[in-house]
Structure formats: C-alpha cells, structure tokens
C-alpha cells in the first residue's frame, strides 16, 4: 500500500466510496455481497490483470461499510461526510 494512492472516488448520499484499482485482486467479495448491489466488475484490468470493482449505483449506497470490512486487500472503503454545524 504505497502511501497516497491514486484512486477513484464516488459521491454517495452520505459521503464517499473510494476504490484503489491497483490494490484489487479480483476476489469479487465486495461486488457479490454489497447489500445494495451498488458495485459491478469493471471491464478494465489493473496492472496485475484483475477486474477491479466500480460504483454503478452510488445513489443506492448507504455507506454501510460492508465492502470496506470484507475487502481482503483494503482496496475499497467508505467515508461519511461530517455534517458541518452551521
């Protein structure tokens, strides 16, 4: 995990989902077990030849963090946007 990865980030209703394509080893856990089917396998490959996940349904995502917990390679995670008390 080189510090400061280049990653893709999708805005969700509560925050963001970040995916670091290069870390993914294509196990498919996040895609299969995301409770809201917000992820799908990308057609592209990373440099190791694995199809990484991509967010196809960010509105459905509720940042439940399942993908973050299940990912064996720490390649996907969720962040909640802090409400800024105005």
């Amino acid at each position: 995990m080189v510090t400061g990865q280049i990653a893709k980030r999708w805005k969700t209703s509560l925050g963001w989902i970040t995916i670091v394509d290069s870390l993914c080893k294509g196990c498919g856990f996040c895609i299969e077990f995301c409770p809201l089917n917000a992820l799908e396998e990308s057609q592209e490959f990373n440099q190791h030849g694995y199809h990484f996940p991509e967010m196809v349904n960010p509105e459905a995502c509720v940042n439940c963090e399942y993908c973050q917990l299940v990912c064996p390679d720490f390649a996907i995670w969720s962040e909640i946007e802090e409400e800024h008390p105005d």
């Binding site: 995990m1 400061g4 990865q5 990653a7 064996p72 390679d73 995670w77």
Partner: peptide, 28 residues
Amino acid sequence: PEIVEDVHHPLERYFRKERLPHIWCPGC
C-alpha cells in the same frame, strides 16, 4: 468517479502499510 490523489484507508494507522500489499492469495 472523481480521481483523487494521496488517499488513505480509514484504518491505515493500524496497518504496517510499508509492508503491504500482503502475501495472501486472491480470495483468501
């Protein structure tokens, strides 16, 4: 997606990130 630089896993402080990625097989 938005392309972002210098991202850090929220639990990074618990990991010896200089030793990752680890040796475990895909799907382990």
